[in-house]
Nucleic acid binder design. Structure first.
Length: 581
RNA sequence: GGCCCCGUAGCUCAGAGGAUAGAGCAACCGCCUCCUAAGCGGUAGGUCGAAGGUUCGACUCCUUCCGGGGCCGCCA
C-alpha cells in the first residue's frame, strides 16, 4: 500500500474508534472518505474530506468531526500535525521520517516500487490496433498501437493479468478488394497494362505481392474468372499484409499475445452460436428499420432483416446482424468475437478503436452486456486523430490514393522512444499534433527530451560520485541516513517520488496511460529544479566531497528518482536514456 | 436530424466533487569560475463557451443552448 492508502487507513481507524466510543453514530458509510494531496502544498502533505462527507449522515458539524479525528490522529507518531481548516478539511502533515522512508524502500524494490495489487489478478483483454490487413500501418494506427500497449503495460503493473490482442479483419469485403488489387499487380508484373479503378488499393506496397504471385503462377491465371484465383490471392495477400503489420508493430516494440482471425468465425458455427445465445435471451428479431434521420441514402428502401435489440441496452436503434440477402453484416462476427472473449473467461474487456468508430461503441457495449449478463465490463477507448506536421505544414494523407505516412516512416525518422512517448502526451480522446520538428527538439518544450534528460542527468551525477569515491550500489545507498535530506526542495522531490504508486493506481483505474507521461514530466521538473538549486547554493549540490554522509543520502534520492523515471518509462515502453547526445 | 468527442491563460494542453484553477511555449526580468544553461527562478496573463439545476462545496455531475471536430448505410 502506498502512503496515501496507509494514511487513509489511519483516518478510517480513527473514525471507527470514535464510533465505538460513541462520539460518532455507528454504521457510517466511509466509502466516500478520501485522502489526497491538497492542491496548495501550504495546506500540508495530505488532506481528508472525512468530516465534510460524514457531517450530514452523522448530523454533526463538519469542523466538530474534524476536530475529533484530529485529536486521535495527532497522537500517532507518524502524524506531525493535524489541523482543521476551511469548511472542515483535516490537513495532515506526516512526520518527515515517514516520507523519507520511501527512499530505501524504492532502492530495495527497484522497478517494482509502485507495483499495485488493485488489479487483484483479474484477467483483462486489451484489444488494440486491429488494423485491416490491407496495407502497412500509418500514423493513425500508431497512436492506437502505442496507447493500447501502454495501457496494457500499465494494467499489468497495477496487478491485472493482461492479454494483448489483435483482431484481424480478414473476413469481410475489404480483403476481397485487396485480392482484386493484388490481381492487378499480378497482371502488371507480367507486363500487362493495368488501371486501378475506384475502390481498389493502388499503393505500391502491393507490387512485390503481385510479383510473388506472378512467379508462382506465371500467366496461368491471366484472364481467368475470380473463382479461380480470388480465394488464394486473398489468403496470400492478407498473410503478406499481416507480416508487414507484425514488422511495423515490432518496430514500435509492440508484442501481441494473441492474434484472432475474423475468418475463423465463418463456417465454424461460431457466429451461429453467439447469435443463438442472443436469441435465447429474446434479443433477436426479424424486422424493418426506420430510414436514417437526416440525409437519407438515395437507394434506401425498407427491407426485412435480422436485428439485435440493442435499444434494450441504451443504443439508439436496433442493429442489423444479417442482411436481407441472408449474409452476415460486419456486426455479426463482432458479436461472435466478443462472445469468444467472454467465453475465454476475461473479467474485463477493453477495445481500443479509432475515433471514427464512435458510432459503434453503444452496440458493442450492448452486446457484451447482453452476452455476459452484465458481468463483464467493456471499456471502449477511442483514439482521436493524429495530425502530422513538418516545417509548419500539415501532412495530408489519403489511403485511397496510397499517399500516407507509414508507421515505419515515422519510426525511422524519430525513433521508437520518441514516437511512443509523444503519442502519450495527450489523453486518448483529444486530437494530437505530431510535429516532426518539435518532437526532436532538445528543449524543455519537448517532454520526451525533458524526461530523458532527467534520467541521463541522474546517471551523470552518480558517475561523478563514483569518481569521487562514493559507492553508488543500490544496496549501499539504501542504508544512507535520509535524515540529512532537510531542504524543502529535497523534501519536495521526495514527496514527488512517493506519489508514484498513487499515480499508477489513478492511471490504471481511469485506463489513462497519459497520466504516467504527465507525472514523469512533473517528476523530471522537480529533479531539474533541485539539481539547479545546487548551482546557486553549493551546499545543496548532490555530490559534496566535504560531507560524505549528506552526499550518500542525496545520492540515494537521486537514484530513487532515477528508478521511478525508469519504471514509468518502462510502462510506456520507452527506453530510458543513459546519456544525452 | 440523431449520436460521440472537444471548448480552461495569447498558443499547446493538464486538472477521479474540495480550499486562492495549474504546466510548458510565447512576453517581460533575472541566474553559468560551479554535479549537463540541452537548465533554473521570478513577473504578468483567467467571468474554466453561456444559462439554469443538483449540494456544505461544481472546471468536474445533470438539463438546455452556443461554437469546433467526428460519425451515420444491409460498408468494413
Amino acid at each position: 500500500m502506498d502512503l496515501f492508502g496507509e494514511t487513509r487507513a489511519m483516518v478510517v481507524e480513527a473514525l471507527d474508534a470514535l464510533e465505538r466510543e460513541g462520539h460518532l453514530p455507528e454504521g457510517l458509510d466511509l466509502s466516500a472518505v478520501t485522502v489526497e494531496p491538497p492542491r496548495d502544498p501550504a495546506h500540508g502533505d495530505m488532506a481528508t474530506n472525512a468530516a465534510m462527507v460524514l457531517a450530514r449522515p452523522a448530523r454533526m458539524k463538519p469542523r466538530d468531526i474534524a476536530a475529533l479525528v484530529a485529536g486521535r490522529l495527532g497522537a500517532d507518531p507518524r502524524i506531525a500535525s493535524a489541523e482543521v481548516a476551511g469548511p472542515g478539511f483535516l490537513n495532515l502533515r506526516l512526520d518527515p521520517a515517514v516520507w523519507l522512508a520511501v527512499i530505501p524502500k524504492i532502492l530495495g524494490q527497484g522497478r517494482d516500487f509502485g507495483r499495485s495489487d488493485i488489479g487483484a489478478g483479474r484477467r483483462v483483454n486489451v484489444e488494440f490496433v486491429s488494423a485491416n490487413p490491407t496495407g502497412p500501418m500509418h500514423v493513425g494506427h500508431m497512436r492506437g498501437a502505442v496507447f493500447g500497449d501502454a495501457l496494457a503495460g500499465l494494467l499489468a503493473f497495477a496487478g491485472y493479468e493482461v492479454t494483448r490482442e489483435y483482431y484481424i479483419n480478414d473476413g469481410g469485403g475489404q480483403v476481397d478488394t485487396l485480392a482484386r488489387s493484388v490481381y492487378l499487380r499480378y497482371l502488371e508484373a507480367l507486363g500487362e497494362e493495368v488501371a486501378f479503378p475506384e475502390g481498389t488499393y493502388p499503393g505500391d506496397y502491393l507490387v512485390p505481392v503481385g510479383q510473388a504471385l506472378a512467379e508462382r503462377h506465371g500467366r496461368a491465371l491471366v484472364g481467368k474468372p475470380e473463382s479461380e484465383w480470388l480465394a488464394e490471392f486473398r489468403d496470400f495477400a492478407t498473410d503478406a499484409m499481416m507480416a508487414t503489420i507484425r514488422e511495423d508493430l515490432a518496430l514500435l516494440g509492440v508484442e501481441m499475445d494473441h492474434y484472432f482471425s475474423e475468418k475463423s468465425l465463418y463456417g465454424t458455427g461460431a457466429i451461429e452460436k453467439a447469435l443463438a445465445a442472443l436469441e435465447e435471451k429474446g434479443l433477436l428479431y426479424t424486422g424493418v428499420l426506420e430510414p436514417p434521420k437526416g440525409r437519407v441514402p438515395e437507394d434506401w428502401e425498407p427491407r426485412e432483416q435480422t436485428l439485435f435489440r440493442s435499444t434494450a441496452f441504451g443504443d439508439d436503434v436496433d442493429r442489423p446482424v444479417r442482411k436481407s440477402d441472408g449474409t452476415w453484416t460486419y456486426f455479426a462476427p463482432d458479436i461472435a468475437y466478443h462472445w469468444d472473449k467472454i467465453s475465454r473467461g476475461y473479467d474485463e474487456l477493453i477495445d481500443v478503436l479509432g475515433a471514427d468508430h464512435g458510432g459503434y461503441v453503444k452496440r458493442l457495449k450492448a452486446v457484451v452486456e447482453a452476452l455476459s449478463d452484465g458481468k463483464v465490463p467493456l471499456d471502449v477507448k477511442l483514439c482521436q486523430l493524429v495530425k502530422l506536421m513538418k516545417g509548419g505544414q500539415e501532412y495530408k494523407m489519403s489511403k485511397r490514393a496510397g499517399t500516407f505516412v507509414t508507421l515505419g516512416d515515422v519510426v525511422a525518422e524519430v525513433g521508437r522512444d520518441v514516437a511512443r512517448f509523444v503519442m502519450l502526451t495527450r489523453k486518448n480522446d483529444a486530437p494530437l499534433d505530431f510535429d516532426f520538428d518539435k518532437v526532436l527538439e532538445q528543449s524543455k518544450d519537448n517532454p520526451v527530451f525533458y524526461v530523458q534528460y532527467a534520467h541521463a542527468r541522474a546517471n551523470s551525477v552518480l558517475a561523478r560520485a563514483r569518481e569521487a569515491g562514493f559507492d553508488t550500489d543500490d544496496g549501499q545507498l539504501a542504508t544512507a541516513d535520509t535524515g540529512h535530506l532537510a531542504d524543502p526542495r529535497e523534501i519536495d522531490l521526495v514527496r514527488k517520488v512517493a506519489e508514484w504508486p498513487r499515480q499508477v493506481q489513478l492511471a490504471a483505474q481511469a485506463h489513462e496511460p497519459h497520466r504516467i507521461a504527465f507525472y514523469l514530466n512533473e517528476l523530471a521538473g522537480e529533479f531539474h529544479s533541485l539539481q539547479h538549486a545546487g548551482k546557486l547554493d553549493p551546499a545543496l549540490r548532490f555530490v559534496r566531497e566535504d560531507a560524505p554522509a549528506v552526499t550518500r543520502s542525496r545520492l540515494a534520492l537521486v537514484r530513487a528518482t532515477q528508478v521511478v523515471i525508469a519504471s514509468g518509462l518502462a510502462i510506456l515502453g520507452v527506453t530510458p536514456a543513459e546519456e544525452m547526445r
